[in-house]
């Protein structure tokens, strides 16, 4: 039984927010040279983990430390917890070495979520780069399960090289085409790459959406999102229908530790997903 339970009406997990619950690593899947997906199940009893697309967990490695990692599984599949992350810090490097059966501490879910319900009836454009696809995968699961509720759905995805692409078999180049448009580009091509080359923001100008009826969701390096917001606004997507997911250092996940402050917001509590107009005045401030 999790010490934290999601209250769906508020998106807030209730219980002792500082105490991790123990899960077992059920599966480790290497996505590419530094990115991997963990599938977790409760250590004791049945797994029941509800979350909203865009929320994150604080994942704890025994004696090593904790890191905020977005949840990238299917929000309808509450019998497991799925995280995709990159082995780039002390904690995530330790996770990279995980094997089936290892224990991992989980606190969460925390934070705000993508506006999948408000976006019903509209076109969706997801602009993502690198590991930024992981926090948006729950949105794609949700859309595919409620396909009739949305108009045109476009995933624009950029990666460094073709070797860095994430979820390529299941999402980017699936055996059966999905009912969404997927446009993939890489910054640097390698021999044999027949796809697009160039930055992901270049895909926005020709994305097959109706800008005046579209909702945009952005996740990736902040500098990429700065250019993407500009390109979306040039297309005519209203500023109050652009959502961004931000990242900062986090220690507690619940607004006590102060590390993730962004202007007046705590990204852990008031984010990570923000409607762009709420943070626009801080978006261009250096070292905010």
């Amino acid at each position: 039984m999790s010490p934290l339970e999601l209250d769906h009406s508020t998106g807030v997990a209730t219980g002792d927010p500082m105490l991790p619950d123990w899960y077992t690593v059920e599966r480790v899947r290497r996505e590419n040279h530094d990115t991997f997906t963990l599938e977790l199940r409760a250590r004791d009893g049945e797994t029941h983990f509800a979350f909203l697309p865009g929320q994150f967990n604080m994942l704890y490695v025994f004696g090593v430390g904790e890191a905020p990692i977005s949840i990238s599984g299917n929000p309808a599949a509450t019998d497991r917890v799925v995280h995709t992350t990159r082995a780039v810090g002390t904690v995530t490097r330790a996770m990279w070495r995980f094997k089936r059966g290892d224990a991992i501490g989980v606190r969460g879910p925390f934070g705000t979520h993508w506006p999948v319900e408000q976006a019903e009836g509209r076109d969706l454009v997801l602009v993502t780069g690198g590991i930024g696809l992981a926090p948006l995968r729950p949105v794609i699961y949700h859309v595919l399960a409620h396909r009739q509720a949305y108009g045109r759905v476009v995933l624009l995805y950029g990666a460094r090289t073709p070797d860095d692409l994430l979820y390529d078999e299941e999402l980017l180049f699936p055996p059966q085409p999905l009912s969404i448009d997927v446009d993939v580009t890489v910054d640097r091509a390698v021999a044999g790459w027949r796809g697009r080359i160039g930055v992901v923001t270049s895909l926005i100008s020709r994305a097959p959406i109706h800008p005046d009826n579209a909702v945009a969701m952005l996740c990736g390096p902040e500098v990429m999102m700065r250019f993407a917001v500009q390109a979306l606004m040039t297309r005519g997507v209203p500023v109050d229908r652009i959502y961004v997911s931000l990242e900062r250092n986090m220690k507690c996940g619940v607004g006590f530790c102060g590390h993730c402050q962004y202007g007046p917001a705590f990204i852990c509590r008031d984010g990570p997903v923000f409607r762009f107009d709420a943070i626009e005045r801080f978006f261009g401030v250096r070292e905010i």
């Binding site: 025994f62 004696g63 904790e66 220690k251 507690c252 006590f256 530790c257 590390h259």
Partner: peptide, 26 residues
């Protein structure tokens, strides 16, 4: 001022760990 950080430590056996909260500064 209320900012804090956390510190994770283990003993030599590696079977006991603890987490501490410490005052931190921006």
């Amino acid at each position: 001022c209320f900012c804090s950080t956390v510190e994770d430590v283990t003993d030599l056996s590696g079977d006991h760990a603890e987490r501490r909260r410490l005052w931190d500064s921006c």
